[in-house]
């Protein structure tokens, strides 16, 4: 549950963003990261951007998430 997902902000209106992570698009809020801009890569945790992140780090984390998801699928459960 502590896992944060790197994602790119592709739409932003006030603190409501649409982000893209590994081709998945979802809503996120930037309330906790007021400096976030369109096009930034951010770490999204439980629906909120919590920090900026660089490209290289994002790629590494995506890879790890893919693996953990695989793990969780085998456990057949949804994660927060």
């Amino acid at each position: 549950m502590c896992l944060a997902i790197p994602a790119r902000i592709i739409e932003l209106e006030a603190d409501k963003a649409v982000v893209d992570a590994m081709g998945n698009r979802f809503k996120a809020k930037t309330t906790l990261l007021p400096e976030a801009k369109l096009g930034d890569l951010v770490l999204v945790h439980a629906g909120f951007a919590i920090s900026l992140v660089d490209e290289e780090e994002a790629k590494k984390t995506w890879q790890l998430i893919a693996e953990i998801n695989e793990f969780m699928d085998t456990q057949n459960r949804v994660s927060g």
């Binding site: 549950m1 945790h45 629906g47 909120f48």
Partner: peptide
Amino acid sequence: AVGFETTAPATSV
């Protein structure tokens, strides 16, 4: 509302 300091701000919002 469970979790550490990572989820607490989301709850606060």
